[in-house]
Amino acid sequence: MMRLRIGLCLASVFVASLALAQGGIDKRRSGYQDMGPSLQKMQDDGTANPGMLFVQLGAQAWATPAGAANKACVDCHGASGATMKGVALRYPAIPEGADTPADLEARINLCRTANQKAAPLPPESRELLSLSAYVAHQSRGQPIAPPDDPRLAPFRERGAALWAARQGQLNLSCAACHDDNAGKKLAGVTIPEAHPTGYPVYRLEWQTLGSLKRRLRNCLVGIRAESYAYDSPEYVMLELFLMERARGMAFEAPAVRP
């Protein structure tokens, strides 16, 4: 009798820890959870979230022919944009025929140059951000799912090293704030865990939509480090690392951030 009870007890402990190990509790927090209820509502309401204005612009650009090929995105990818469902969740990735990873904006620009025979759109330009917001919005609510491409591993590792390295006049690493002090205050601001769940985001401070790159540049400037050029591979490496770190978290683009 006694032995049976101990057996049952052990079995239930085992079942409970199994549930935990299977990710019963995910302690990661998106920047969304650090915002007040009014900003959360603004993000959730499709007619109050200013990022949706850019999604609307993106839908127009999606259907507008461009370049020497005079082709629109619709001509190859379909009118609804539904073919882009899930795409933003697995970038940066290595495009076919390439050997280095591209983020979503770079992948869109690849279609601009290779398929539309048009000039690439400048970084942070309204048209590029609108197209990436339109593409990213198709994946809203789905879990972030980086590809299991072994060729990405060395790039992601370099991203992890950048994350951990102290830099700038303030001699801080990304990890010093976002791993070690997340949830605490920096001046009046809650330090988020820095998950790339919502990009491109409408940041109230910017009063416009901005890419993950722009956000990373902001943090680099904040620690008085020299930010990398817009087309440098360091951003893509950091983005790869951040997407892996946020694997499985719900995608929110276009999110709102303070």
Binding site: T47, A48, M52, L53, L57
Partner: peptide, 8 residues
């Protein structure tokens, strides 16, 4: 280009 979102 006019770009408006209305909720009513």
């Amino acid at each position: 280009m006019a770009n408006v979102l209305i909720n009513a």
